[in-house]
Design a protein around this nucleic acid. Structure first.
Lengths: 244, 244
DNA sequence: GTCTATAACTGGATAGAC
DNA sequence: GTCTATCCAGTTATAGAC
């Protein structure tokens, strides 16, 4: 039943992520540097294996610092996780807000649903493609949290809902006859499509026999806004009388 | 930073899922019953907290059987997980195949993209809504795995790709001018939208201020095929000359 | 088939030396 | 600020009684 023979769930680190005793990093310690090294390593490990799949010892090893420092700076393992999640949310959302401001300043009839969607997804996709491994890991982590029952929905709400409410409001301006329930469900579908992309699981590569690549930014950037804009238009177009 | 005060990552079981010493089950042991009880409990716990967030002891407690039985029947914790994942994939995919057979038997011009999508998503949504807590948990687990980097894509490939290839083939028949790359990407978006729904994180409830419910089967069933069919049509409609 | 007991180990966290 | 040493609760897994 197991194809690889190597359990993907074990705590063991694989060759590419482990750090040999001769630290891979320039041992760039010295106060703030250690703190950042811990966050970078934790970001990568949490994204790859989830909160419970990572140990404080792994983080210390990967960061090239003593594991006890994680407790010194962040008190608990959960503190490390929260710091990771918090670090990149503000810059990401700030750029989304900026693009949404621009759309809001334009006349309503010069803004398309695809424009609104692009303002929401492009800041994420652009960092995912060109922001370096830190952003890649962070966005994969967001994708995982978004699909996590129990606390996932609550966590996403806390960090990302304000900007989503602006997306809905702008979409309402583009599609004045739309019912709010339809807008929310379409946003939900958009969120799922975006986060599966950011998770970069490699499934589409295998499925397509290599014709598509999980990491192909232009392919996503050109298709996702167009696809989901059509979804918004189709679902909100009809007069839907009965709805919960 | 933590809103709830109660860590959602801890191994502690909450009141609704824990089992007091006076087992909640009728202690329905006796060979096969214990095996099934273990699978049911593991399914629920893995779905809620992921592989590493669950212990064999938790599973035994929740199932009302001795934890050592999990090893007796499944050898390892990973064996339990694989058995959970395997159990419900065949019946789900069998019904998808049946519905796809029906569509394939019809003339091409009487099959719409929404029909193809419905044949793929309805068997999952129907069980999610009316299949009981076991199916709910199983589908939430699939959603989590689908968005898991490293081994998630590989696992989904193993269990679900055959039926997806049929979906793509039927879609190709509906949209004969479509490029395969576009079809694969649109399936990818569909997969993300579907699995976020199955994860049922409660985010849309909070986001919409209660106007939408994560668990609203009719709301999803009427909108998802329509939304994603429009996405397929929009993306594949144009002649796209240059594509990786 | 089921459960008790325990082996063998790893987890988060901390006290205190440097 | 950093690291060593360590606590001890909790982990998977198994041997062997019943």
């Amino acid at each position: 039943m197991d194809a690889s023979g190597q359990s993907p769930y074990s705590h063991r680190m694989d060759a590419t992520t482990s750090t040999r005793k001769l630290g891979r990093r320039p041992k760039a310690v010295g106060g703030e540097a250690a703190r950042e090294a811990i966050l970078d390593a934790a970001e990568r490990l949490f994204a790859a294996r989830g909160f419970n799949g990572v140990t404080v010892r792994h983080i210390g090893e990967a960061a090239g610092v003593d594991p006890a420092l994680a407790h010194y700076y962040f008190a608990t393992k959960r503190g490390v996780f929260d710091a990771v999640f918090l670090r990149r949310a503000p810059p990401l959302n700030a750029e989304r807000e900026r693009l949404l401001d621009e759309l809001e300043a334009r006349p309503a009839d010069e803004v398309t649903p695809a424009d609104v969607i692009a303002a929401f997804v492009e800041p994420a996709l652009e960092r995912w493609a060109h922001g370096g491994p830190g952003w890649k890991a962070y966005l994969a982590l967001v994708a995982q949290v978004n699909n996590t029952p129990e606390w996932g929905g609550e966590t996403m709400t806390r960090y990302f809902d304000p900007v989503v409410h602006r997306v809905i409001a702008l979409m309402r301006r583009c599609l004045p006859d739309a019912h709010d329930v339809d807008l929310y469900w379409c946003y939900h579908f958009l969120s799922g499509a975006l986060t599966l992309t950011l998770a970069e699981t490699g499934r589409i590569d295998r499925l397509s026999g290599g014709a598509c690549a999980s990491s192909d930014y232009p392919a996503v950037s050109t298709r996702l806004p167009e696809a989901m804009a059509a979804a918004f238009v189709a679902v909100t177009a009809r007069g839907r009388a009965s709805d919960r």
